[in-house]
Design a protein around this nucleic acid. Structure first.
Lengths: 263, 263
DNA sequence: GGCTGTCTGTACACAAGTGCACAGATGCTC
DNA sequence: GAGCATCTGTGCACTTGTGTACAGACAGCC
C-alpha cells in the first residue's frame, strides 16, 4: 500500500510541503479513505480518533449545529489543510461536526500516532502549528464577516474560497446547501445568486454554480476572502496561480538553530 | 519582585491550575503590567512578542478591523485565559488586534521563553493546548451565532459572558463600544437594551449595564453562551458558582504515562 | 454651580433579510 | 421517454436592522 500512496500523498499541500524524511515518518501510518457528499468525519462531542488530510478536490466543513436544527459552517478545509484535532491535538472531544461538502478521498492518521511523530519531527510540528494559526485566522475573520457583511458579499466570498480549493470554475453545490452553510434563507440566497448571474459574475445551474468572471467576483466579495488568503501566504507561504487557485505551500525549510520559534 | 507576584499569579485561573513545579518554572519570567481601557496589547500583522495572562477583572478582546473602519470582536479573554500567540505559539504575525475592554493588569511572559519552558513542562503544554481548544470553540460558536441569532440574543450572550469573567453584576461598558464589538448599529443596540430593561433583565446606566436577573438573561441569550461554557467545563474543568461566575479550572493532574495525548 | 464632552433616547425613512407558499424546471432512473 | 424527486424561481407580507439626525441627560472638571 505505501507505493499506492505515493501519488495520493502529493494531493494534499500540507503533506507535500513536508521534507522527505518527515514524510517518510508519516507515510506508513496514512490510510486512504474515500468520502461521499454529506458524510460525517466526526461528530461534535465525540473524541476525534483521526486527523484527515483531504486530497484533490475533497472539501470538508466544520459545522456547528444549532438548537433549531440548523447547521452553520464555521470553516472550510480542502487539500490545503487538515481536519480533526488540529488545535486540540486530538483526543479532546470535538466541538464541531465535520461534514464532507465535495466528495473525494482523505489520507488519515490516528491522532495519537500523529502526536507521537510530532515529538520527533520539528518540521511536522512547525507545519501543523502554522496551519492551526491559519485555521484560526479563517474562523476569526468569519466572525467579523458574519457580523457585518451582506449576504451577497459573504456568498461571493464563499464561492471564491471554494474555487481556490477546487481549481475549477464549476462548483458543485446547491442553493439549499449553501444557504444552510451561510446560515441564511434559501429563497433569499436564490435571489442573490440570480442578481450575481444578471451581472455576469456567475452562471447558475441545477446543483452547480459556475464562476464566469473571477475579477468581478472578487469585487463583489468582501475583503475577508483576501485577508485570509494573505495570512495563508505569510504563514504557510501559500502560492496561488493566475486564476486565484491555491497550488502549493512553501516547503518546510531544513532544520536550523533559529527554528525553536514555532515548536 | 517574585514575592510581589505571589498573589497576582493566583489572579489568573490558567496559572492557578498549574502544579507548583510548573508554576515555579514560569514565575521568574512573569512581568506584571497594568493596562487602561482601550489600550492595545498587540496589533494585527505584527509579531507577538509576549503572551499575557489577564488578572482579576481585566478583560481583553481579539478584534478584527474591517476596511470600513469598524472593529468587530471575535473573542473575549479574561482571567480564565491567555492572549497572544496561544495557537500560533508566538512569533508568527498576529491576525487580530488585542484591545483591553475592562482595565486591569496582566502577567506576561516573552513568547520565546514560554515556548522554552513548554519544552520541559508537559503540564504547561497540556494546559495551553486545552485552552487553545476552548478559545477555538468560543470563536467557532461565534461564527454560527453571528450568522443566525438576533441582536437581542447576541447582546445578552455577550453581557453574560462578561459577567462570568468579572463576577460582578455591574458591567462597565457603553452602548457605543458594545455596538462596535457586536458589529451593529449603536442606535438599535440602545433600543434593544431598553427592551431588556423594560422586561426587568438589566438596568441601563451611563457607561454601565447592571444585570438585574441572571436567569432571565440566560433565557434571553442564545444557546451559544451555554455551549461554550460547557466546553470549558469538559476540556478545562471550569467551575462556576451559583451565580454563573467562573471561579476556577481543574488543576493540572500529576504526570503519568497516559499523558502523551495532549502534548 | 455652571460648562463641556460624552453618552443615551428616540424618530423616521429605508434596506436587508425572513418565512412561507407554490409553480416550474431539471436531471436521473427505470 | 415517462415519471419522480429534488432543486430553482418568484410572489408577498412581515420583521429585523441600518443610517442619519438631533435632543436631552449625565458626570466630571474647573
Amino acid at each position: 500500500m505505501p507505493s499506492a500512496l505515493e501519488t495520493p500523498l502529493s494531493g494534499n499541500l500540507l503533506l507535500r510541503a513536508l521534507r522527505v524524511p518527515d514524510r517518510a515518518l508519516l507515510e506508513p501510518h496514512l490510510e486512504l479513505k474515500p468520502y461521499r457528499r454529506g458524510e460525517v468525519l466526526f461528530e461534535a462531542g465525540v473524541d476525534v480518533s483521526h486527523i484527515s488530510f483531504p486530497l484533490g478536490p475533497c472539501v470538508a466543513a466544520l459545522v456547528i449545529g444549532l438548537q433549531d436544527g440548523r447547521a452553520v459552517e464555521t470553516a472550510t478545509v480542502g487539500h490545503e489543510g487538515a481536519i480533526g484535532g488540529v488545535v486540540s491535538q486530538g483526543l479532546l472531544p470535538a466541538f464541531s461536526r465535520a461534514v464532507v461538502q465535495v466528495p473525494g478521498s482523505v489520507l488519515r492518521v490516528e491522532a495519537a500516532v500523529l502526536q507521537q511523530i510530532k515529538q520527533t519531527s520539528p518540521g511536522l510540528r512547525n507545519l501543523m502549528t502554522r496551519y492551526s494559526d491559519c485555521l484560526l485566522a479563517q474562523v476569526l475573520q468569519s466572525v467579523a464577516c458574519n457580523a457585518s457583511h451582506t449576504i451577497e458579499a459573504r456568498c461571493s466570498r464563499w464561492l471564491l474560497s471554494l474555487q481556490d480549493r477546487l481549481g475549477s470554475e464549476v462548483l458543485p453545490i446547491t442553493h439549499e446547501v449553501l444557504a444552510e452553510l451561510l446560515g441564511v434563507q434559501r429563497s433569499y440566497l436564490t435571489r442573490t445568486l440570480r442578481t450575481l448571474q444578471e451581472q455576469g459574475l456567475i452562471q447558475v445551474r441545477r446543483g452547480r454554480i459556475i464562476i464566469e468572471s473571477r475579477p468581478l467576483m472578487e469585487a463583489a466579495a468582501c475583503e475577508c476572502h483576501g485577508a485570509v488568503k494573505r495570512h495563508f501566504e505569510t504563514v504557510l507561504g501559500a502560492v496561488y496561480n493566475a486564476s486565484g487557485t491555491l497550488v502549493s505551500l512553501r516547503p518546510v525549510p531544513a532544520e536550523g538553530p533559529p527554528m525553536s520559534q514555532a515548536v
